[in-house]
Amino acid sequence: MKKITTLAFLFVTFFGSILLAQSTRPDSLLPVRGFCIAAPQPKQLDAFLKFINEELAPRQVNTLILRVDFNYQFESHPELRDSIALSSKEVKKLVAVCRKNAIQIIPQINLLGHQSWATTTHNLLRVYPEFDETPHVKMPEKYAWPNTDGLYCKSYCPLHPGVHKVVFDLVDEICAAFESKAFHAGMDEVFYIGDDKCPRCSGRNKAELFAGEVNTIRNHLALKDRKLWIWGDRLIDGKTTGIGEWEGSMNNTHQAIDLLSKDVVICDWHYERPDQTAVYFAMKGFNVITCPWRNPKNALLQTQDMLKFRATATKEMKPRFFGMMQTVWSPAGSFWDEYYGVKVNEKAGENTASNCFKTMYEEINKAIR
């Protein structure tokens, strides 16, 4: 009897340890462990590759969102390139380093919104002004918010008959260059949509316009078996939740959530409060990723929440809690200066993107261990 008991104990101990190891494998714990940053300038490429090897890979980051926009030497539309932009050869270096470290690259080009910033009109509307949703709103010499035009960022008109031919050329080319099976379309902070003065959009339902654009992009990507990722703020009712106009919608686009294809991946960002809207997106049938920025305390709570959701959810809900992603909204070079202590923002204190990144991944890797 003692021998049988001993064998049973060893059996349970051995196989229990295997099951525990399996349950805490990184991909089982959090399928997406992400990092989002602007694509580097060509002169910063070597530093970026070093950062991937020495900082992202050891933390078991497996997803890299690169905000490329027009920082690529497009062949389909060379008129839309930035004056200094990554070449296809340089992009292949990025692809190779990420492949070596089992990191998937997902390129981003801001679609629909964010076609301008402050006093600057970005390349798409500068070159193709006919795509502008609000051509009557002129860019100011000095930008201030709020303003009488309600101008935060320009949008292109989703119903313009020529816009998708141009936009999809860029999307297809950048996905091919990065050998990516997914594309991030941005779609955040869209304040201009269905403008009353737009000859195509005037009087139309804003939620239907937003959903129509998301699904149009999604359907185009699906033709080549690619997935669409977007930011989630326009799908949250900013008024009812009290979340407001930045991290939620105040122009009724939130109603689009019931009109979207369920295979769109939602990147749910909250920077001021650790709001638990990941549950809302998961209950609506979407895979959702929680995204902090520069508040380490919030990032810690958000990571703990995501781990708890995955640990306690039903078998139907668990796969939809997709993971965590650190976001960076400064240029890549500025982030590295902050990260390595080259420049210290004394005013920010501990509330920096680099501290947030370190805190989030310390918590993730503690859970993995």
Rank of each mutant, 00 (worst) to 15 (best):
T63F: 05
D305G: 00
G248Y: 11
I103P: 02
V12H: 02
S87W: 08
F9H: 09
I243M: 11
D172R: 09
T5L: 15
R369H: 13
W117A: 10
M1C: 08
G248T: 13
G232C: 03
D82S: 12
L10D: 03
L228F: 04
A222N: 12
D305H: 13
Q115D: 06
K206T: 15
T148F: 05
V97I: 14
K93W: 01
T121K: 13
A57D: 05
F131Q: 10
G203E: 06
F15E: 11
K284N: 15
A47N: 11
P146S: 09
K197L: 15
I109C: 07
Q73A: 15
K89I: 13
E141H: 10
P292L: 04
F322S: 09
K366S: 13
C198M: 07
K43A: 15
P292E: 04
P146K: 10
N355A: 08
A39M: 08
C291Y: 00
Q41L: 15
D27Q: 13
V328Y: 02
A299S: 14
H164Y: 15
T240F: 07
T290Q: 12
D27K: 14
N147C: 09
D263M: 01
K93L: 15
E316P: 00
G203P: 03
K142M: 09
R294K: 10
L30W: 02
A211S: 13
K181W: 00
S202L: 01
E75C: 01
L111F: 10
I52F: 05
K138L: 11
I174N: 05
Q108A: 09
L221T: 09
F9C: 14
E362C: 01
N101P: 02
D337A: 11
K343N: 12
G248P: 09
S76C: 14
L86H: 04
K138P: 00
V61K: 05
D132W: 08
K347N: 08
N295L: 06
H122M: 10
V12I: 15
L260V: 11
V344S: 04
E350T: 10
V163D: 09
Q326F: 06
L19N: 08
K284Y: 01
A47G: 08
D233G: 06
G150P: 06
N219V: 01
E213T: 14
A96G: 00
D268R: 01
F178C: 05
H122V: 03
K3N: 12
F14N: 06
N251E: 11
F183R: 04
L94S: 05
K197H: 13
L45N: 08
L56M: 12
Q22W: 14
G16K: 06
I243Q: 09
C153A: 12
R99L: 05
M283K: 13
F9V: 15
E133L: 13
H77M: 03
L209K: 04
V328W: 01
A353M: 12
V328A: 03
V328C: 10
A96S: 11
A353L: 03
F357V: 04
H184F: 06
C356A: 07
G232Y: 01
H114T: 05
A332E: 10
H77V: 04
